[in-house]
């Protein structure tokens, strides 16, 4: 892949020449912002100002969500196709960063794939007119393209959305607006998703399936919807990624550490309070974002029971906190 970044804003575009997108691909990374305190609203906005002059979008409720302008990265690479067939991908990938409640940072890269409008590579001008669209030369079967993308483990061989979403995280975390102090040591979680996009009958709703992979902190989502659903699907994946990160962080990092700390006579209170005060309030399923989002979220919940699991973990954290308060560990 030969990425070249130009900065321009614009949402996911519909390709010109009337071609319909067939597939939507994306990757979301979620981590904590490297700053001791949570960022104020204005600091969040300043941090998300990745392209001077382009608007940063901000929503205050139910959680404060600040989104950077879209960045455009040009790509021309071979697709990693599962089973048989080959294809070449030419066009542009969009990526943006999101800050939630001044604490959580997400980096998202996404793209819509369509069949090529010509037999050969066209001028860059053509691809730049449709930011977020990649044309596929050759005619590999879309199912094979989708499986190829979803199963490609690092090092990426095809369309490398992983490094684009990673790069945006790296750039934001390096900003001189942050004090670079790690408030809580946790991993970065990755959600990779792919959607089949086809015109749907009027009443049809988008659908979702989620797989946990063997790789730690890595989830794969498959979605179905119409081409117009793409922005909704992108948002769903970001919301899933945020909640999945919250659950993993509380369940696999904070609770086990606190238990070890207590067993070894160390003080776990800081991270317990961090979980209760900073992370628990972020649990805010996006069901208010309309019936389609609600349907997607509920389909996900009915399989994963994430909300119930998260509630159980926060209850456990309260127990641990009370336990520590009653019998404070020895301080050295």
């Amino acid at each position: 892949m030969s990425p070249s970044t130009t900065e321009r804003d614009g949402g996911p575009a519909v390709p010109d020449d009337g071609a319909q997108p067939l597939l939507g691909f994306g990757e979301v990374r979620t981590c904590l912002i490297q700053n001791l305190a949570g960022l104020s609203p204005s600091a969040s906005v300043a941090l998300m100002q990745l392209t001077p002059g382009s608007p940063v979008s901000k929503v205050d409720r139910p959680t404060r969500r600040v989104v950077s302008p879209e960045q455009v990265t040009g790509v021309d690479c071979r697709l990693h196709v599962a089973r048989e067939g080959r294809g070449r991908a030419i066009g542009t990938v969009l990526s943006h960063a999101v800050v939630t409640n001044g604490r959580i940072l997400q980096g998202t890269a996404h793209v819509a794939l369509t069949s090529a409008t010509a037999k050969e590579r066209r001028e860059w001008r053509h691809y730049l007119r449709q930011p977020g669209v990649i044309e596929v030369l050759g005619s590999p079967n879309p199912h094979n393209v989708m499986d190829g993308y979803l199963t490609d483990v690092s090092p990426a061989r095809g369309l490398d959305l992983a490094s684009i979403s990673d790069r945006i995280i790296g750039e934001v975390q390096q900003s001189n607006r942050l004090d670079h102090t790690t408030a809580l040591r946790t991993g970065t979680a990755v959600v990779r998703w792919a959607a089949t996009l086809a015109p749907q009958p009027p009443q049809a709703k988008p659908t979702v399936g989620i797989t946990k992979s063997d790789v730690p902190n890595f989830h794969v989502i498959r979605l179905n919807g119409s081409p117009e659903d793409l922005p909704l699907l992108i948002r769903f994946c970001e919301e899933f990624a945020l909640h999945e990160w919250l659950l993993t962080t509380v369940q696999d990092v904070i609770v086990p550490r606190a238990e070890t700390d207590i067993a070894r006579d160390r003080d776990p209170l800081d991270s317990l309070l961090f979980a209760l005060n900073e992370l628990a309030p972020l649990w805010m399923p996006p069901t208010h974002l309309g019936p389609d989002m609600k349907a997607l979220w509920e389909a996900m919940e009915s399989r994963t029971h994430y909300s119930r699991l998260f509630e159980r973990q926060t209850a456990r954290i309260r127990d641990l906190r009370d336990q520590v308060k009653i019998r404070p560990p020895r301080r050295y």
Partner: peptide, 16 residues
């Protein structure tokens, strides 16, 4: 050097 700093920052978020 910036890329190196980026790596150290990323690892510091995850590793003690």
């Amino acid at each position: 050097p910036a890329r190196c700093a980026q790596l150290f920052l990323r690892l510091d978020r995850e590793f003690d």
